[in-house]
């Protein structure tokens, strides 16, 4: 089922469209959730269900002129994973060591924005550093994997992520955020 049909069926409140989302993107949802927060198998399923529910609830806010459905689903999943982490982790300044995820490190900058507003900013992040930044920040991949994938050293990967963060900060600064 292509994304346009999927989108229309979700808008028409066809619950079977959620089954199609899971068929097409289930592996990706699980991958993002697994990278964002350490969970048992049962918790992963619960979090995936949260992500699907969020897709269902927010589909009217999706604007196909501003992002592809796949980008939007990825970001909604990321948001659901972060919410799940927050509701299961201790509040305030507590972070359990093994659960610190790259996804969370820069999160505070986005806390004031909706998912769609975050997408708008991320769309503006230009190459060459954006891919590595997206790998780390959105997919939650660890540095070893990123370095292997892009065939660069870890040190180089860290530098490019820092450049990506600075670039995004510039984008935010322009908007007074």
């Amino acid at each position: 089922m292509n994304d346009e049909i999927l989108y229309r069926r979700l808008l028409m409140r066809d619950q079977q469209a959620l089954s199609a989302v899971l068929n097409q993107y289930g592996g990706l949802l699980k991958y993002i959730i697994g990278n964002t927060v350490v969970l048992t198998a049962e918790e992963i399923e619960e979090c995936m269900s949260d992500a699907l529910f969020l897709i269902w609830q927010r589909i009217e806010k999706y604007d196909n002129t501003k992002a592809s459905l796949k980008s939007w689903i990825i970001m909604v999943t990321r948001s659901a994973a972060i919410d799940y982490y927050r509701k299961t982790a201790k509040h305030k300044k507590t972070v359990f060591i093994e659960e610190v995820s790259s996804t969370l490190i820069f999160q505070e900058a986005f806390d004031l924005l909706s998912i769609e507003e975050i997408i708008e900013r991320l769309q503006m992040l230009p190459p060459p550093d954006n891919e590595i930044f997206y790998d780390r920040f959105i997919l939650g991949e660890n540095m070893d994997r990123i370095a292997d994938k892009h065939e660069i050293s870890k040190e180089n990967a860290y530098k490019r992520i820092t450049r990506g963060r600075l670039k995004l900060k510039e984008i935010f600064a322009k908007e007074g955020l």
Binding site: Q24, G27, L28, S68, K70, I74, Q123, N130
Partner: peptide, 21 residues
């Protein structure tokens, strides 16, 4: 502003299926 969709270009190439997942 929306001509540049770097995130979409990236997402397009992200695998929808991960074998391990």
């Amino acid at each position: 502003m929306f001509d540049k969709k770097y995130l979409d270009a990236y997402s397009e190439h992200v695998k929808a299926e991960f074998e391990d997942e």
